[in-house]
Amino acid sequence: MRSSLPKPSIANVLAHFYGLDIKASRGRQKVCCPLHADSNPSASVDVTGNRWNCFVCNLSEDSYAVIMRERNCGFLEAQEFARTELGGDGQDLPPDVPGQPSRGLRSSSGAGRGRSTVRPGLRPFGSTWA
């Protein structure tokens, strides 16, 4: 049985799929959500916690959950993709950034909010809505 690898960094995963430039030296960073049209940043990336979330989409994911959603695959396939395509172990992060156990995709509905459906590859980051 293979040993468990640490998660790939959320910064690397978001850069790979959406072209987002996340500074690994920051704890939290606001960004425009790559999954919907966004003129003001409605999402944040927590480099320390290795997660991102969008307040409009009502979506919170770790790096493996992003890979699984975008590639439409299971956890083991996402691990293999991270290992082969992204270097998979998050070792490019500063040593003071601890790994967090994966909680996968989390979506909750708050009071007065409807559930949003987020589809993989909805729009490439930086594209315009015409």
Rank of each mutant, 00 (worst) to 15 (best):
Ala111Ser: 08
Arg106Phe: 10
Asn58Glu: 08
Glu85Met: 14
Ser9Leu: 05
Arg69Val: 03
Ser60Glu: 15
Lys23Leu: 14
Ser107Ile: 11
Arg28Phe: 01
Leu5Trp: 02
Gly87Ala: 03
Tyr64Arg: 12
Leu93Gln: 09
Ala65Thr: 07
Val118His: 02
Thr48Glu: 01
Ala11Gly: 02
Phe55Met: 04
Val118Gln: 05
Ala11Ile: 03
Ala111Thr: 08
Ser116Lys: 12
Gly88Ile: 05
Ala43Glu: 02
Thr117Phe: 13
Ser44Trp: 07
Asp46Val: 06
Lys7Leu: 14
Met1Val: 06
Thr84Gly: 04
Pro41Ser: 12
Trp52Phe: 15
Lys23Trp: 10
Ala78Thr: 10
Trp129Glu: 05
Lys23Pro: 08
Arg26Thr: 14
Arg2Cys: 08
Gly27Asn: 12
Leu122Tyr: 08
Leu76Ser: 15
Thr117Leu: 14
Val97Trp: 03
Ser9Met: 02
Lys7Gly: 03
Phe81Val: 05
Asp38Glu: 11
Cys73His: 00
Val47Ile: 10
Leu59Met: 12
Asn12Trp: 05
Asp89Gly: 05
Gly112Met: 04
Cys33Ser: 13
Ala15Pro: 00
Ser127Trp: 00
Val56Gly: 03
Ser116Glu: 12
Asp96Gly: 01
Pro101Lys: 14
Gly114Leu: 13
Leu122Thr: 10
Arg69Leu: 12
Thr48Leu: 08
Ala82Asp: 07
Val97Gly: 02
Trp52Gln: 06
Glu61Val: 02
Glu61His: 13
Phe17Trp: 03
Gly126Leu: 02
Cys32Val: 06
Cys33Leu: 04
Gly112Gln: 01
Ile10Cys: 08
Phe55Thr: 08
Lys30Phe: 13
Phe81Gly: 03
His16Val: 01
Gln100Pro: 00
Phe75Val: 07
Arg51His: 08
Ser3Val: 12
Lys30Tyr: 10
Gly19Tyr: 05
Leu14Ser: 04
Gly74Asp: 15
His16Ala: 04
Leu122Lys: 08
Pro124Ile: 09
Ser4Gly: 06
Val66Asn: 11
Asn53Gly: 09
Pro34Phe: 03
Asn58Arg: 04
Lys23His: 14
Ser25Ile: 09
Lys23Cys: 15
Val118Ser: 11
Ser39Asn: 07
Arg119Cys: 04
Thr48Gln: 07
Glu85Phe: 03
Ser9Cys: 11
Ala111Phe: 11
Ser63Val: 06
Cys54Tyr: 01
Ser107Thr: 11
Leu76Thr: 14
Arg2Ser: 14
Leu93His: 03
Gln100Gly: 01
Met1Trp: 01
Leu14Glu: 03
His36Glu: 01
Pro94Ala: 09
